[in-house]
Structures are given as structure tokens and as C-alpha cells.
Design a protein around this nucleic acid. Structure first.
Lengths: 173, 173
DNA sequence: GTATCCATGTAAATGGTTACATGATTCG
DNA sequence: CGAATCATGTAACCATTTACATGGATAC
């Protein structure tokens, strides 16, 4: 909404496309909070746009109060993220698992992260190509973070596999 | 519990010490689930240990059924983690913020990640020193992941700052 | 004509934190 | 003695997902 008027649906799609790797919301969150934002005066919906083209779409727009609130929020120190890496939890219980299980998990994790690095990179190239049309500097910055993190994860998974195999060989000697 | 008999309290402390960077639980989760585990037969508590030394501590132990369930769970593919990096959300709204705000956030993020890398490294050294006493191979593996990820984040924050400053200079020319 | 997408919404369930109450023990 | 820590627990609240219902528009 801060970028342009949006419907709840397009906000969801927007998040899926641009933010999915570090943020996600469900309709169960989006629709009620949009209503709340209107009630608080941070957004307004265009009633004239309702059923405009036979559709039930409701277009929301940010208000001046909303922009003010946004900049206030942006100034506040970002919350420390609460992570829950199930793969790490499982690895930490490695003693109770078969070696093969761990290697399989790490392999899948590595493959997934490799794919994500590629996705992020091609996303950044796409952005470069469209850089004249759309403001994309900040999207690229966040995508770059993805490249850094996913690469790190990929490398870690490789190293973890190596160490597990090495340890296994020592045991069998 | 899979490692040794534990009270709810010691489980919490354990998680805080060993897992805090990738997992966290509150008492509000731990105590009810311990009871649930007993009800399902995956754990049992020692009633004879209750009030043993004047304390109300309840020591839980994993059962055979619990171990079986644990290995089954370990075999299952780890869930894809749902991340919520508020800092990335704020950066992506950079257009609506002052440059100084973004640089401050990135600076704090960088400092925090730098500190975490150091923590993880010293944790790994500690583990090395105690490697004869305790099984620590898997704890080290997960700590290593921390080193990789936090280093990546630190480097990204540095690069992001650099790009923002560079862009700012171009604008002012 | 039927499958997919556009579009809005809610109810129930689950997941998780916070704040509080309680009381013993330990350390200075 | 007072503060910190050990230790258990719950109720209220907040956050979030899932599953479902509805129906028009579009594409094949």
C-alpha cells in the first residue's frame, strides 16, 4: 500500500513474490488487519471502487496518518528475529539418528539452498534489466541478503556432510 | 530428556544455552507438553523424586516409546523454516525512510552478528576443550552453522551500508 | 463447460509469549 | 535478612495458520 493502492489479494501476491524468503502473511492476517488499519485511520478503502467492474474488489490506500506511522515504525529498532530451524534441531539430536538420515536431510537442505541462491541471483538480474522502469534498489539489497545467507547455508551443509562422513570413517577403522 | 533425565526447568536452561540461536521455548510451552508427553506414554516422571530434597522438582525421563517416536521424528524431512526478518522488511521499505535510519539499523545488525560469530566461535573452542568428557560433535556442527550464517549477515550488512552510501553520494553530485 | 484465477472473508484450531502466583533454597 | 536462583505452573492474551465458503472472470 505504501507503494501503490492495493487490494488484499494483490498485497498477498506481492508478499509471495517479493518477500517470501524473509516474510509471509496469510489471508487470515491480511484481511482483518486491513479493516483494522481503516478503523484506525491509517488507510482508507475506496467504496466507489467496490464492484466497479463487477468484481468485489476493495482497493486500499494509505493515508497521511498511515505514512507518518510507517516512518515512525521504520525508525524503531528492528526486533531481533526468532528463528526455528528444525533441521538444526534434528542435527543436534544426531546421536539418536542414523548417519544416513542426517546425510539425507543435509543433502536436501543443500539442494534447496543452492536453488534459492540461483533464484535470488536471477531475481537480481531481472531487477537490473527493469531498473529504469521501477525503483528496485531496496529489493535488490534484500535479495542480496538472500544470496549471502543461502550461500552460507549451502556451504555449511556441505561442510557438515563432510565432517559426518569423516567421523564415520574414523569410527569404522 | 533424550540425553538425560531432566526437569522442566533444566530443559528450559538447556535450550537457552545450547539452542537459543536457532530454537526457543517458554515455560508456557514446556510444562504443558511435558504433561502431555507423560499422558501419551512418551515420557514418565519419577513420583519418588517429587519433593525428594524438600523441592518440588519433577524429573522426567524418556520412555522406549518416546525414543521410538524421536527416531521417527528425526527421519521425517525437516520443515522448511518460516523466517521473519524485520530488518529486511524495513530495508525493503527504504524509500520511505531516511538514509540515516537505514544505516543505523544496518550498523546495529552488523554489530550484533559480529558478536554472535565471536560467541559461536568461543563456544566451539569450549566444546573442543571438553571433547573428552562430553559428546559434543553435533553441538559443534550446529554452532558451525551459526558461524557461517552470522558471518554472512555481517558481511551483507557491511555491503548494504556501502551500497547505500555510494548511492547517496551519486544523488548529491 | 470446467478449471483456474481473482477476490473477500471467517471460524476454529494451533502455536507461542507474557505476566503472574507460589514457595523453597542458596549465597553473600 | 535480602537477593538471586531453582522450580512449577496457569490464565490471558496475542499471533498465525488452516480450512472452508462464496462467487465472478478468464482461458482453454
Amino acid at each position: 500500500m505504501a507503494h501503490s493502492p492495493q487490494t488484499g489479494y494483490t498485497i498477498k501476491k506481492w508478499i509471495e513474490n517479493e518477500y517470501s524468503y524473509f516474510w509471509q502473511e496469510s489471508y487470515g492476517q491480511i484481511y482483518p488487519t486491513l479493516k483494522k488499519l481503516v478503523a484506525e485511520g491509517y488507510a482508507n478503502c475506496e467504496p466507489e471502487a467496490k464492484f466497479e467492474n463487477g468484481r468485489g474488489q476493495i482497493i486500499y490506500q494509505i493515508t497521511d496518518a498511515g505514512r507518518l506511522e510507517l516512518t515512525n515504525w521504520l525508525k524503531k529498532e528492528p526486533q531481533i528475529e526468532k528463528l526455528r530451524y528444525e533441521i538444526l534441531l534434528k542435527i543436534s539430536f544426531g546421536k539418536n539418528a542414523e548417519t544416513q538420515t542426517l546425510l539425507t536431510h543435509l543433502d536436501e537442505f543443500k539442494t534447496r539452498n543452492k536453488r534459492l541462491v540461483q533464484e535470488m541471483n536471477s531475481y537480481m538480474v531481472q531487477m537490473d534489466e527493469r531498473s529504469e522502469e521501477v525503483e528496485c534498489f531496496y529489493s535488490q539489497l534484500t535479495a542480496l541478503c538472500g544470496v549471502y545467507v543461502y550461500s552460507a547455508m549451502e556451504k555449511w551443509a556441505e561442510e557438515a556432510k563432510r565432517r559426518i562422513l569423516e567421523r564415520n570413517n574414523e569410527k569404522n577403522e
